[in-house]
Design a protein around this nucleic acid. Sequence first.
RNA 1: GACCCCGUAGCUCAGCUGGAUAGAGCAGCUGCCUUCUAAGCAGCAGGUCGCGUGUUCGAAUCACGCCGGGGUCGCCA
Length: 586
Amino acid sequence: MSSLSGALTEVVARVFADLGLDPEFGRVTPSNRPDLGQFQCNGALAAAKAAKQNPRAIAEQVAAKLQALPQFRDISLAGPGFINLSLTDAALSGHANKLASDERLGVPGKEPLVVVLDYGGANIAKAMHVGHLRAAIIGEALRRLFLFVGDDTIGDVHMGDWGLQMGMIISELEIRRPDLPYFKASFEGPYPNASPVTVEELEEIYPTAAAACKADLARMEKARLATAELQQGRPGYRALWQHFFDVSMETMKRDYGALGVHFDLWKGEAHVDPLIGPMVEKLKQMGIAHQDKGAWIIPVAKPDDKAEIPPLILVKSDGAAMYSTTDLATIVDRVQEQNPDEILYVVDQRQHLHFEQVFRAAILAGLNGKAKMEHLGFGTMNGKDGKPFKTREGGVMKLQDLIAMMTNAAMERLNEQGIGTDYDEAERREIARKVGLAALKFADLSNHRIANYVFDLDRFVRFEGKTGPYLLYAAVRIKSILRKAEAQEDRPGSILPPEPGERDLILALGGLPDAVMDAYRERAPNKIADYAYGLAQTFSTYYNQFHILSEPDKALLRSRLALCALTLRALELSLSLLGIEVPERM
RNA sequence: GACCCCGUAGCUCAGCUGGAUAGAGCAGCUGCCUUCUAAGCAGCAGGUCGCGUGUUCGAAUCACGCCGGGGUCGCCA
């Protein structure tokens, strides 16, 4: 199946081809002039340019051939050669009935690609904060989208657990507690099973250490040395690292879990450590890596570069690996393990140059197998002042706190509305959680990925208008209607040719595949957010115009129930692709 | 300095593979709850699409140049 406009495109493209014109010009889209028609095709204008003919004449020929087809209620020409098309009500209901029996709601299937998505980036020893939010939310939405469209997806958290930050923490702990066995070179183990620090302590140690290193060169040197020694395999440091990893992993899983973000792989930078040595050796032998100022680098500049692209640093002059090294080795790992067709990096746009370097180096050395690599950057979350978001106290807001805040606001709303006073406490909490998360995710996903966006707490906590809760509300009202219908023994039936007020709803339902495929093609979840909002609005209009349950004509009632059920499925699918859960009632 | 991203209504944002009269939400103003959840619906008002030049029958959309904001530019991630 396809969308309504997709089906029309096929028809009109064939007509263009019959006229000896490029079928590409037959593209049909929903009309931006609903007063003139439901759909439009502007291809006659472009075709005329290419064929050096009169656009109006081409449009007339196309229209004449379309007239012979039964599905059109109206075909008209306007302006220099716009073709306006409207379907008969029978064609609309026919499409709606096909949708109702199609599991994929009209979205076509495709040959699966193996796609690795990298959207984690949480760091060991660092509490997750709002800065991790976008990668998680956008990445999860893309993973679900790719999976639904038909690819084999692998989500990898790719946590930060191998770089200089580890050396900072280890050296800080060594300064504070030099007596620990991990620091005694002569210690022959075994090391204790329990971690010497809790995750809360780690979350304090890391920023303290980072600040100290920034302020003091000698202190930084200590951290660098510890990093290099860790990577070279010093047993005490490795044992310590394992403790950090284990205690951090717990909270990381808790936080991603609370967000409803799933990963198939919980690998980190450290995981590819064994691959680094052989990879570096190979790159040296290939002559791709060069020694420069004590470091090993890979020049990646090209003659036609607009800007000078600095070389990738493969091995630092102190012998340690850095994130460019682990990112390359991670590509090697992924090619070995999954042999992906695509690797998508959902990472802050500020790292764009880094990925350009990594991709170029990977391609130079042929490390990427058949994989196309793509950096899907996203903008920064800023405060109202246009600077990166800070709490009123000037700190970073922890993810946990943000989620709690959204949930509380939702609970308050529930209380205000006086709704759900008869629900048990557990259900109320569950509703508040879903509403809060929906608000958070929808606010993020309805923005275009690449743009920075303003994180305004006051606005976030409002649930009116173009928000996640609005969408849940629309879905929940439909569920309520269907439950009541079920209780009075009325069930969805065949969809009848629509009355004028029903046409818009079917047209909106028929557009879902376009939204999904556009979002897929452009890796842009906001297209789905937009679609879902538009559909919810169209349904709300419908809901206010027709009172469904009181319809005395049973066939009509069953038709309307079917439209409701179909709308609910379209809404739930769109929302699930965004990672948003719908409660039964709210 | 070079390069990248952004600049659309008072505010927050869609729209950008060129197409007709540029859309939403919030804020403001008018109406609509004795029938399915008013977290809603109907309506009004609000715009030199940063500025300029160019390409085109046609530019918010493409190209070039400015202006403004953000970012990046070899051993942090």
